[in-house]
């Protein structure tokens, strides 16, 4: 939320070693179930909350979650308002120029189009497509021939399709799944899934090598012993491949 914590600071020096007692602040968006969302008790919940807590536990770190708007989530990481981003963020080349990523903790996951029933598939190339701004999906639409309609939060994109402002929405399929299931036939998937990202990773400042290596090591561990797969199955119900 903190647009006021101003200043994109490229920190040119190391933050020093991560001592076990240091608090690591984890940034997330909190509006993208099942990746991360604020539950009814006003707490962060979802796959990334559970996975992140496990990571910290295994790494022997004390972690604290910080909620931040998607729009400003990278600038605020760089500015030092938190130390990591876990917000369903796909690893892309453009982002890697500004921050660095751990290895991916989710394999490349499918994105899908959702529209009202009876919508023609051709809207994918020449209709109006809603996406959340600054996402890999918005990049896909901007590069294509369809009209892009951007919204700051993901649930507004769904509302835009319902009211006809957009012909379809492009988002992570895992996010869209429940909306389609629970719409009672008012929303349907359209066309084929696409795979725009290279998997979801944890973002850290480029200077924070030690922190990145710590998390990289634990992620490898959890990939190897199957505990990550267990979590993926629990939250994504087969919608995303396991490792």
């Amino acid at each position: 939320m903190n647009k006021l914590s101003i200043g994109l600071v490229a920190i040119a020096f190391s933050f020093g070693s991560v001592v076990a007692s240091d608090v690591v602040r984890m940034g997330s968006e909190g509006a993208y179930p099942p990746y991360n969302f604020i539950n009814d008790n006003n707490e962060l919940d979802g796959f990334e909350r559970e996975f992140g807590d496990l990571l910290c536990e295994r790494a022997g770190l004390t972690c604290e979650w910080v909620i931040n708007d998607w729009d400003t989530i990278i600038p605020n990481l760089v500015a030092g308002n938190y130390d990591t981003i876990m917000a369903g963020m796909s690893i892309t080349e453009a982002r890697s120029q500004v921050i660095s990523f751990t290895q991916n903790y989710l394999p490349p996951d499918p994105s899908a189009y959702v529209a009202l029933p009876g919508t023609d598939v051709s809207v994918i190339t020449d209709g109006v497509i809603a996406t959340q701004s600054n996402t890999v999906q918005s990049g896909v639409v901007a590069d294509g021939s369809a009209d892009l309609l951007e919204f700051p939060t993901p649930d507004e994109t769904i509302a835009a399709v319902r009211n006809g402002e957009a012909d379809a929405v492009l988002a992570d399929k895992a996010y869209l799944n429940r909306f389609v299931q629970e719409s009672g036939g008012q929303l349907v998937f359209l066309g084929d899934d696409i795979y725009p990202g290279a998997g979801v990773g944890m973002g850290v400042r480029q200077s924070d090598n030690e922190l990145r290596e710590t998390f990289d090591r634990v992620i490898s561990e959890m990939k190897a012993d199957g505990s990550l797969n267990e979590l993926i199955l629990k939250w994504f119900e087969g919608g995303i491949d396991t490792f």
Binding site: K3, A31, P33, P34, F37, N39, D40, T153, A159, R178
Partner: peptide, 25 residues
């Protein structure tokens, strides 16, 4: 607009559609 969690923020947040990931869809 200044990013403070005020009435408008919560009205938008709570009013949006909630799927069954939430306790009160």
């Amino acid at each position: 607009l200044l990013g403070i969690q005020d009435i408008v923020y919560w009205a938008r947040e709570l009013g949006g559609q909630k799927t069954s990931f939430y306790t009160y869809p």
